Computed example of a mutant assay.
Amino acid sequence: MVILLKIAATVAFLFGVIFLYLPGGFGILHFNRGRSKAVARGVSVLWVAFMLVHLLAIYRTWFSADSVYAWLVALFLGQVVFFTTVARDVSTT
C-alpha cells in the first residue's frame, strides 16, 4: 500500500510541475509585463525554484521518511497561492 501511495504522489507532483510550467508560464509572462526588471527576474526565479521543489518532493517521497501528505498539502497550498497572486492571467494572448 505504501508503494501505491508513493506512485500516486509522484504522479500528483509531476502533474503539479506540468501545471506550473504550462499555465504558470503564461501567468508569469503576463505578470512580468509592465513590471520592473528586478521584480520580473525575482518572480521568475521563484517560479523555477517552485518547480524544483516539486522535484525535490518526489525525491524525498521515495528516499526519505518524510510524510507524503505533508508534501502534498504544502505544495497544493503553494500552487493555490501562486495562481491567486502572481499567475492570475493565464491566457495565451
Results as ranks from 00 to 15, higher is better:
residue 2 V to F: 01
residue 2 V to M: 14
residue 4 L to T: 11
residue 4 L to V: 08
residue 4 L to F: 12
residue 6 K to F: 06
residue 6 K to Y: 07
residue 6 K to G: 08
residue 6 K to L: 11
residue 7 I to K: 03
residue 7 I to W: 08
residue 9 A to C: 05
residue 10 T to M: 11
residue 11 V to P: 03
residue 13 F to W: 01
residue 13 F to G: 01
residue 15 F to I: 13
residue 16 G to P: 04
residue 17 V to Q: 01
residue 17 V to S: 03
residue 18 I to V: 14
residue 19 F to G: 01
residue 19 F to H: 12
residue 19 F to D: 04
residue 20 L to V: 01
residue 20 L to H: 15
residue 20 L to N: 10
residue 21 Y to W: 13
residue 21 Y to V: 13
residue 22 L to V: 14
residue 22 L to C: 00
residue 23 P to T: 07
residue 24 G to F: 04
residue 24 G to C: 07
residue 25 G to A: 07
residue 28 I to H: 04
residue 29 L to C: 01
residue 30 H to V: 03
residue 31 F to T: 07
residue 33 R to Y: 07
residue 34 G to Y: 05
residue 36 S to C: 10
residue 36 S to W: 05
residue 37 K to W: 07
residue 37 K to H: 10
residue 38 A to Q: 14
residue 38 A to L: 14
residue 38 A to K: 15
residue 40 A to R: 06
residue 42 G to I: 04
residue 43 V to G: 08
residue 43 V to F: 09
residue 43 V to E: 12
residue 45 V to N: 05
residue 45 V to P: 00
residue 46 L to G: 15
residue 47 W to I: 01
residue 47 W to E: 03
residue 49 A to L: 15
residue 49 A to D: 00
residue 49 A to Y: 02
residue 49 A to H: 00
residue 49 A to K: 02
residue 50 F to I: 06
residue 50 F to N: 09
residue 50 F to D: 12
residue 50 F to T: 13
residue 51 M to F: 08
residue 51 M to D: 05
residue 52 L to E: 04
residue 54 H to M: 12
residue 54 H to A: 04
residue 54 H to G: 09
residue 55 L to A: 12
residue 55 L to G: 08
residue 56 L to Y: 10
residue 57 A to P: 00
residue 57 A to Y: 00
residue 59 Y to K: 02
residue 59 Y to F: 15
residue 59 Y to H: 07
residue 60 R to H: 06
residue 60 R to G: 00
residue 60 R to N: 10
residue 60 R to I: 00
residue 60 R to S: 06
residue 61 T to A: 09
residue 61 T to D: 00
residue 64 S to F: 02
residue 64 S to L: 05
residue 65 A to M: 03
residue 65 A to L: 06
residue 65 A to V: 01
residue 66 D to Q: 04
residue 66 D to W: 03
residue 67 S to Y: 03
residue 68 V to E: 03
residue 68 V to T: 14
residue 69 Y to K: 01
residue 69 Y to F: 11
residue 70 A to Y: 02
residue 72 L to V: 10
residue 72 L to Q: 07
residue 73 V to P: 04
residue 74 A to K: 04
residue 75 L to N: 10
residue 77 L to I: 15
residue 79 Q to D: 08
residue 80 V to A: 15
residue 80 V to C: 10
residue 80 V to L: 15
residue 80 V to S: 03
residue 80 V to G: 02
residue 81 V to H: 03
residue 82 F to G: 00
residue 82 F to M: 14
residue 82 F to D: 05
residue 83 F to D: 05
residue 84 T to K: 14
residue 85 T to R: 07
residue 85 T to D: 04
residue 87 A to H: 08
residue 87 A to L: 11
residue 87 A to Q: 10
residue 87 A to V: 11
residue 88 R to P: 05
residue 88 R to N: 07
residue 90 V to G: 01
residue 92 T to Y: 11
residue 92 T to W: 13
residue 92 T to S: 09
residue 93 T to Q: 08
